[in-house]
């Protein structure tokens, strides 16, 4: 991976001492995280470690109970509070891709893509459709525009989901285990799209177990366990000599099976 100078880039996401509980269960403990513009972060960890919850807090699908989360949009720092205007502003700039795609089954692929640009960004329909078709070409399925999600394969659906998120022209993309629900032969087509996206300088937070992707794309790999960030570092370092015992155990389980 080409070494980029991220230190000079502005910080776009700031998490400071973020805590969250489900009832009595402490899912996130004192999370501190700073993400620079166009940084690619891969978050891994055993199931139930809080990695999905972490990125879902960033666009407030989940509400954190202590600490601050702030997202910079066009140089303006917006803190996530209960203020609905702030939540709206952040969601406009942060795209998300889900494990289970969550495409809207009653809308065509094209309508899935243009829904938010039209109604949230107030974009004229024609313009939204042009952008959508451009994105569908980029994810290599323009011919499917008039079909419904149920008619597509899993890999195609996930690529549509990525295109749908991109259609809002987000500055940051969150990926919540985007390949976990896919058959093995479809994983690559989705990863290829994500790699391409990374090459264009998108800021990305990716929860995934695809260590190959982490090695080739990530600027930083974060390992989470029991709601804490246990270890983080550049992929070369992270995979070559993990410092923490828990990281080593996890990596040996995931790499040698």
């Amino acid at each position: 991976m080409a070494v980029r100078n991220l230190d000079a880039a502005p910080t776009v996401i700031e998490l400071d001492q973020v805590n969250k509980w489900y009832g009595q269960f402490h899912v996130l403990t004192d999370i501190d995280l700073q993400v620079k513009q166009s940084e690619k972060i891969v978050i891994c960890g055993p199931s139930g470690s809080g990695k999905s919850t972490l990125i879902r807090c960033i666009n407030r699908l989940e509400e954190h109970q202590a600490g601050t989360i702030a997202v910079s949009v066009d140089g303006r720092r917006i803190e996530l509070t209960s203020d609905v205007k702030n939540v709206e502003a952040i969601r406009k700039e942060v795209g998300m891709v889900f494990q289970s795609f969550n495409l809207f089954p009653h809308l065509t692929i094209l309508d899935n893509l243009t829904l938010a640009p039209i109604w949230v960004k107030k974009m004229p329909k024609k313009e939204a459709e042009d952008i959508a078709m451009g994105l569908l070409r980029r994810v290599r399925i323009p011919e499917q525009a008039q079909k419904y999600p149920g008619q597509l394969s899993g890999g195609q659906q996930q690529r549509v989901a990525i295109a749908r998120a991109l259609c809002m022209r987000p500055q940051i993309m969150l990926f919540d285990e985007p390949t976990s629900a896919l058959d093995p032969e479809m994983v690559k087509e989705v990863l290829d799209v994500m790699i391409e996206l990374a090459g264009e300088g998108m800021t990305m937070l990716v929860v995934t177990h695809e260590m190959g992707f982490a090695r080739s794309v990530a600027d930083r790999v974060i390992f989470m366990d029991r709601g804490e960030i246990v270890e983080q570092g550049p992929p070369t370092e992270f995979f070559a000599n993990p410092r923490n015992e828990r990281t080593r155990t996890f990596l040996s389980q995931i790499l040698h099976h």
Partner: peptide, 15 residues
Amino acid sequence: HAPHAKARVAPWNDP
């Protein structure tokens, strides 16, 4: 953890 100053929310924007 250090308590953060709660950002002020305009009442009509508070859900």
